[in-house]
């Protein structure tokens, strides 16, 4: 009896499956609450059915990149929308992507685009220092990342595990800007200073908001959530007068040999458009548009208002690979 039922359901599903036609499959590591409305908008506009797998580099899955790599021989995804700028580069290096230069991204500065067209950046986040404003006064707040290695912040700093997510990107960028030796010294000092290594950026946010530590290094979107939740926290864009902070655009790339190439291209055109940049700026994540002319809410800075590190994302990806053994050992693994 059971067998019959199961077979029926299977058949039914099979029939349903074979109807799949005008669609596009996207894997995104941009948080679901932000990416879903954007993708739905695309679906409504074009009538192309979107099938999404959400993930976020922050959570405890091993994530989409592993899945993309594992699926290499028979790709399921057409488009990979990454919330940060290193993994797409990694996919390019591993030969998983195919070039597509979107005309819609013509007005995005070329530092956010791959020279060969494998990846294209849009709306960005930045790395920031979050501090608990009831424990730290405005005057005391740290202005540079490097300050956090100083004795006055002993045992009071939280950072996410630098092997993962945006923190890993941030560290690689620091190694490029400061040079290996200086960066290594900074990190060792930070550790000697009793930095608390936690599992994710949202963990950093949680600890700072609860006052378990005074300051933490995290992303703008995490910080924004804390601010809007009404926690006693404030944001510092570090090193405004020095090296600047790391700007991390979203990145999108087309997967090689995927089933729906044309629809994938249409989706990329849409994602890099100013419309999406605007809607992401107005969303809770408050992402900064890469185009100067895109309108933002009052509390969202434009890319022009902060000083970004002068780096190339390809180099960052290469650097990250180079230093990950050091990071692993640093994090105590």
């Amino acid at each position: 009896m059971k067998f019959i039922t199961v077979t029926c359901i299977a058949l039914f599903m099979f029939i349903k499956m074979s109807y799949a036609g005008n669609e596009v499959v996207v894997y995104t590591s941009e948080d679901k609450i932000f990416s879903e409305p954007v993708l739905q908008q695309f679906e409504k506009k074009t009538g192309i059915k979107i099938r999404v797998i959400y993930d976020t580099e922050e959570t405890k899955s091993t994530g989409l990149v592993n899945r993309l790599i594992a699926e290499k021989n028979n790709p399921q995804a057409d488009v990979f929308w990454s919330g940060e700028p290193v993994r797409p580069v990694l996919l390019k290096i591993k030969g998983l992507t195919t070039p597509y230069v979107s005309s819609a991204a013509a007005d995005i500065s070329k530092i956010y685009k791959d020279t060969e067209g494998h990846w294209t950046g849009f709306s960005a986040r930045a790395r920031i220092i979050l501090y608990n404003s009831s424990l730290v006064s405005m005057d005391e707040r740290p202005l540079s990342i490097l300050d956090l290695a100083k004795p006055r912040w002993r045992d009071q700093v939280a950072i996410a595990n630098p092997l993962f997510g945006t923190t890993s990107v941030h560290m690689a960028a620091l190694f490029i800007i400061l040079g290996d030796e200086k960066a290594r010294k900074f990190m060792n000092d930070l550790k000697a200073n009793g930095v608390k290594i936690v599992s994710s950026n949202s963990e950093v946010r949680r600890l700072v908001a609860r006052g378990e530590v005074k300051v933490g290094i995290t992303d703008t979107d995490d910080a924004n959530v804390a601010v809007r939740e009404g926690s006693a926290v404030k944001i510092v864009y570090p090193d405004e007068s020095g090296m600047g902070t790391l700007i991390m655009p979203n990145m999108v790339c087309l997967i090689k040999n995927s089933p729906n190439q044309e629809n994938g291209k249409k989706l990329i055109d849409y994602l890099v458009s100013s419309e999406v940049e605007k809607s992401l700026a107005f969303a809770m994540c408050a992402q900064m548009p890469l185009r100067h002319y895109v309108q933002t809410p009052a509390d969202v800075l434009t890319i022009a208002a902060i000083k970004g590190m002068d780096i190339n994302y390809h180099d960052v990806a290469v650097k990250l690979d180079e230093i990950s053994a050091f990071l692993k050992q640093w994090a105590g693994y």
């Binding site: 948080d31 976020t56 922050e58 959570t59 949202s202 979107d221 995490d222 959530v225 939740e229």
Partner: peptide, 11 residues
């Protein structure tokens, strides 16, 4: 769903 919203959704 829980894991994918956990990162940046309000607690």
């Amino acid at each position: 769903a829980l894991f994918t919203v956990m990162a940046n959704s309000p607690m």
